[in-house]
């Protein structure tokens, strides 16, 4: 695998994108969106994290094995959070105590 250098321009655009998203999050936070504000905040954070991973961390330019490792990590994290929340969120759906 040969290393391809990411250009300064790409880094600069990533920086501007990240700062713009931070401003957007901060402005959204000042509006009362109810529970949606938490979801919107985490969603924008996920976009920012992908920008950092893709460009600053060179995930887009690295060998495929790195992407497999990243995907593996994400899948295990999603299993952890979805099964745990799947339990807690659905408690009380049944009319029996403790179900």
């Amino acid at each position: 695998m040969s290393q391809s250098t990411v250009s300064v321009k790409t880094y600069a655009f990533t920086l501007i994108g990240l700062l713009a998203l931070t401003l957007l999050t901060s402005l959204l936070a000042l509006v009362d969106l109810g529970n949606f504000s938490f979801i919107a905040g985490v969603a924008i954070a996920a976009v920012k994290a992908s920008l950092i991973a893709c460009f600053f961390m060179h995930a887009l330019y690295e060998m495929k094995l790195i992407r497999v490792i990243m995907a593996g990590g994400m899948i295990w994290f999603l299993i952890m959070i979805s099964l745990t929340l799947g339990d807690y969120l659905t408690r009380g759906w049944m009319p029996y105590p403790g179900k």
Binding site: S26, L30, V31, L33, S37, V42, A49, I52, F56, M57
Partner: peptide, 24 residues
Amino acid sequence: GLYWHFVDTVWVFLFAIFYIPGAH
């Protein structure tokens, strides 16, 4: 660099979950 960017990524999520929901 990878380590530093990772720590940055964690903060992005910490900011989202701790600061945003009650800011308004």
